[in-house]
Amino acid sequence: MIAIDLATTAVRDANRQLQSAADGRFEMLNPRGAHALACGLSAPLDVHVAGHVGYYCGGMNQHAAISVAGNAGVGVGENMMSGRLHVRGDASQSAGATGHGGLLVIDGNASARCGIAMKGIDIVVGGSVGHNSAFMAQAGHLVVCGDAEDGLGDSIYEAVIFVAGAVGALGADCVEKEMTADHLARLTELLAAAGLGQDPARFRRYGSARQLYNFKVDNLSAY
């Protein structure tokens, strides 16, 4: 384990050290809410951040496994491509925004707009999510073990949402859908991967009703 003490190392230098490593285990000490920690990693590193982090932690991650022993600020795991990011506490708004791949696990709650514009990432939230989560979500899975506030899945494309608890008003064109055997199997895999001992039978599935403009073949004539 290689320790990087952020009390004495600038964020840019710390990130440069991680970005230039091919492998290895790292511990980032004294994060104190700093922004943009462990961003842009592209190798299968194992990075542990020992405390609360600021905005955009683990953004653009490829292949690395990052864990945060605390809360994360806005945009944790934004535009993740692959790898794993595990937040032990809560996450602020726009967690996993625009993520293309990989697994984002949040043990606590995530605030508004979790998974906004997600493009293939899998997000598993142990607690609840705030309003407008999975807004315009295009691909991937959002699993919520608690509740989801109003506007869930507004203008959603092909992403799949599973929620165990109560759901506020669904967003435009988002509807509850049948939980097929395939969906249940995928949900079971995701819960296992996240290490959350939740019963998949508690969950309901939500997705696109495909009634908005983009889904109407007649509108092709506009082009």
Binding site: R32, G33, A34, H35, H52, G54, Y55, N71, G73
Partner: peptide
């Protein structure tokens, strides 16, 4: 506004 203001 941000946690870093509380960190110390």
């Amino acid at each position: 506004s941000e946690f870093r203001a509380l960190a110390n």
